[in-house]
Each structure stands twice: as structure tokens, then as C-alpha cells.
Design a protein around this nucleic acid. Structure first.
Lengths: 282, 282
DNA sequence: GACAAACGTTACGATATTTGAAATACAGAG
DNA sequence: CTCTGTATTTCAAATATCGTAACGTTTGTC
């Protein structure tokens, strides 16, 4: 008598939580470097500038420390200041990501199919990969203006409560999946529990039907479809997703028309041989 | 009797070199943070993976130090390891750039005109901004496969020997320009000297005719046209450029047809009011 | 298959770097 | 003009970081 909720927990039980996570302030890690990176990571799409004091507050650091770290980041070219003296990310930070984009040249071959999906759904289509315990969007197409949120490369999201994320999870085999789930449950116990049933079903559905759907599980107003693609030669798990505003998403259409079409598109993309065939299709 | 070569040097004479640059290992900067960032910056489009020893060699660090720094970077999610144990950038590094992309939403409005330019030139069209003493591409359109080098967001290049860079320089007014030139001359004395004449002419041309051309000054096999756009509300100088393979670039066509058309495109983009009008057009 | 060479990680003590408190400098508001 | 909130600099104390050395692995050669 195992419903999908307990299945996901059973899987997670099989996995090992990364040891590091526990002794947070490990003296084998460099705290100065971590703090510097944490400063850069404070910025997001609603917070584009921060004062010294604000940074110090959020990270629990001394203002003098923040001053020196920010000076270093400016010196390296990753931060700049506005006329008021507040800190902003400098465009040069893009240079750090360039090698990642450059290593995913194959994505240019997906532009055509992705455009089709975006048009077909009157929404957008995004390409995501696993990085750590999150997914990261590496590319997107679609009309940015007609949409509540604009997808751009670099957006990250949860693996266990989004269409992209669940499609990616479905690609993980055996122990890899168990470990990932164990970590997710460890890091987000409540969320994991709340979505465990939906997540388990989505993983199964991706493996059998080739797609899964999420009705606002991540972004409340967005209905998303995810479909797994495969594993690249350099070890990245890749999935496609499309998103559409909730109000324009009739469930019947999503489930019986758009979903199967996404699955079919994924299938034909896999024909190109860009990705290793998922284990469950071998 | 001042030819363009001496003009650029006269301008540079008026500027002040950033003081910091001198006492390199300033104890007001955090060396640990710098080293960590330097590790991330070692990766580029031809070097996508590095061993511990290789990193240590290139940065002149102890292997043990590198081990610890990389462990930290992995912990933060910006680095990962391949099966052989070599280090790779993790896709999560894209998340650091997301706020920059998000802050340049206006670029979506340029997609149309940029596509036209790319098609018209049978090459590509890129959008660049100044960051530090370099330009950084923030967006590009064009056919990636038909080209010797694929432009992607995050590519950086020199302000003083590229079409994008010179178009950006032309936007700097008075002391801002002088300071920038002083720094460039200080950091790249030989290059600066070698290109000073071309650079001075290009700046003048951008201000009078609205565009400039570069015949392989940066990427040897590429002819590029640059055209200044203006200054955004958050203080970024922006320019457009297009690039085409040298063999397909007839000089007459570039100078008398493509160039003026770029200038005209820039003019109509400026009409949108996205950018502050360049000082020399006021 | 055994050996050597190169590599990556961990432990540990010395030390150089980072830190936080306090003082100084600065900007904006009233 | 003073006052408040903020940023930077200074300096001594402390502690986080570094390099050495030792260990365990892998790689490649003979």
C-alpha cells in the first residue's frame, strides 16, 4: 500500500545526505571567499543595488569587513557603484558565465524546436540543467513582454516543485536520484513533504509519457510543462519546459494536446544524438 | 600640427590613472577572495576544465591552497568536478549574472533592429556595454554556425582596439574619456600606441558620422562596425556592433552602405528614448 | 606486474591576513 | 549650522589562511 507520497520518501531514505552540509562552518572552507561570493549572490531581479550597511545586515558582517570585500570585488571588476555610493553588479560578471554558455553550444540547435513550442503554447520555452540541488535555466525563447515573469538565462529554481525540476529528476538513475532526493528533503523538509506526491507522480509520468505538468507549484500564476531530454557529454542533465499564464491554460488542452506535443518534440530532439538516451528508454 | 596619433595621447595625458593599480598587493584588498575569483576567471572557451595542479601553476599558488579554494567554490555551487576529478564551472555561475540581464530588459526592444542588421550584413549583431576598462557583450543575434567565432553574452574585449570598444569610447565626455584613455595606455602601453591613430579616428567618426569600422583590429578575421547608442538610466554606456567574416566584406560596401545603415538604425533606436542622448548630439 | 612520478587531499604549526572597535570623514535632513 | 546615519580608515588582536610535509591514489613506463 504505497501511495506516491510515501514512494518519494522511500526513495529519499535510500539516499545519503552530503556530509558537508552539517558542520556548516567547516575550517576546511575559506570563509573570506564564501563571504565575497555571498555578497554577489545577494543581488536579484528585485534588488539591483545595495548599500554597505544593508549588505552587512543581511550577511551579519561588520560594516568595515563589507567595505573591504566590496572594494576587492570592485577592484576585480564584478561590482560597481552608483552615484549615491550604492553597490551594483558590474556587467563584467557576465564574463564568468561565458565559458558555461560556450560549452553548451548545442543549445543553438534547439532554438528551432523551442520557438515552435513557445508559439504553440503562446508562452515561452526554456532549457534547464541541474546544478547542485537546483535547476538553472541556460536559454529561453518567447515573448518577454506578454508575460508575468521574463525568463532569462541564469534563473534558478527548485528541482522538487517545478516542471523543469521534476523533468530533470526523472533523468536521474537509481542511487543518483535517491541521493538527490535525500538532500532535497534534508534542505527543504516542509516543501519536500508538501510536494512529494506531485513530484513522485511527475517523475513517473516523465518516464512513461515523456512529460509532466505543474499548475503553479513554483510560480503561482504559471502553468508549466516539463520534458526530459537527456545527459550531455560533459555530464549535464537537460530538460525543456514551457510556461504559460495560468488564465490561458485550459487543463484539457495542457494535458491532452500540449503535453504530448512537448513529449514528441523532445523525442525528435533526442534523435539528433546530442544527448545520451535516458536510462529508462534504453 | 596634431595628427590623430598624438591627439589620443594628448587626451590620455589629461586623464588620471587609477591609483590602486600601482601597489598591486594592497593590504586593503582581500587576497583570498581575489584568488578564488581568479580561479573562476581562468576558464574560457578553449579551457573548460582544469586540474588542481594546473590552477596552482597558472596562479602561482600552492596546491594545498588551490585544493581548499576549489572545495569552497564547489561548496558554493560555482564549480563542479568531472569523473577524472578535474574542475569545471557549474551552470549555477549563470545565476550570478542573472540580475545584470534582468536589469537590461530594454535589450529585448532591440532584438528587431539587431536581427535586421545581422541579416543585412550576413553576419551577426552584438550589444555591448562598458565594464571597467573593457567592453562586455550582453546580447547577440545572428547565425552562430556560419561564423569563425560565436558571439555570446559575456564575451569581453578591449575598448581601444575593437569597433564596439571605440563606439563606446566615443560616448564618454571630457574628463571621463581622458581618464579612461589614461588607464588604457597605462595598462596596455604597446597596444595603445599601435592603435592610437585608428582609435582617435574612430572616436571622431562615431561622433560625426555615427559609426566606425575595424578591419581585424581585434579578431583578425573579422571586420566589424560599431555604432554608439547612449547611456542607460542606470549608468551603462551602450553600443551596437556587427561583425562579418573578412573575406565577405568588401570595403566599399562596408564603408558606404553598411556603415551608414548602422548609423541610421542607431538613430532610430535612440528615438525610443531608452538612452540618454550622447553629449555630442545635444 | 612492479616501480616511479605526478597528483590531490589532509593535518598542523607559524604567520600573515583578516577582523571588529573606535575614530574619522562625509552627506543629507531639519 | 548641527545632528543623524552612513561609509571608510586605522590599528592592535585574533584567527583564518598558508605552506610544509606526509599520506594515499592514480597514471604511465619499463
Amino acid at each position: 500500500m504505497t501511495d506516491s507520497k510515501t514512494i518519494l520518501n522511500q526513495w529519499a531514505d535510500e539516499g545519503a545526505v552530503e556530509p558537508e552540509a552539517s558542520y556548516a562552518v567547516d575550517h576546511a572552507l575559506s570563509s573570506t571567499l564564501m563571504r565575497g561570493l555571498e555578497i554577489l549572490a545577494l543581488f536579484n531581479d528585485s534588488v539591483d543595488r545595495l548599500s554597505n550597511a544593508e549588505i552587512a545586515r543581511q550577511l551579519g558582517l561588520n560594516r568595515a569587513t563589507v567595505s573591504r570585500l566590496c572594494k576587492t570585488l570592485i577592484h576585480m571588476g564584478y561590482l560597481r557603484r552608483d552615484p549615491k555610493g550604492q553597490f551594483l553588479l558590474a556587467p563584467r560578471i557576465l564574463a564568468l558565465s561565458y565559458p558555461v554558455l560556450s560549452a553548451t553550444r548545442w543549445r543553438h540547435q534547439l532554438v528551432g524546436p523551442m520557438r515552435e513550442i513557445a508559439e504553440m503554447s503562446s508562452g515561452n520555452c526554456t532549457l534547464a540543467v541541474i546544478s547542485g540541488d537546483q535547476f538553472v535555466q541556460v536559454y529561453s525563447v518567447g515573448n518577454p513582454s506578454s508575460f508575468p515573469h521574463v525568463p532569462e538565462p541564469g534563473i534558478t529554481g527548485p528541482l522538487h516543485r517545478s516542471a523543469s525540476g521534476r523533468a530533470l529528476l526523472s533523468l536521474l538513475e537509481g542511487q543518483d536520484l535517491y541521493d538527490m532526493l535525500a538532500n532535497l528533503r534534508h534542505n527543504f523538509p516542509d516543501e519536500f513533504e508538501e510536494h512529494s506526491s506531485l513530484t513522485a507522480d511527475a517523475i513517473t509520468r516523465c518516464r512513461t509519457e515523456g512529460f509532466c505538468a505543474s499548475y503553479g507549484d513554483w510560480r503561482p500564476n504559471i502553468v508549466a510543462l516539463g520534458t526530459p531530454l537527456g545527459l550531455t557529454s560533459d555530464g549535464l542533465y537537460v530538460a525543456l519546459a514551457c510556461g504559460l499564464p495560468r488564465f490561458s491554460a485550459r487543463e484539457d488542452y495542457v494535458e491532452n494536446d500540449l503535453g504530448p506535443r512537448m513529449a514528441k518534440a523532445a523525442e525528435s530532439i533526442r534523435m539528433t544524438g546530442l544527448f545520451e538516451t535516458p536510462f529508462y528508454l534504453k
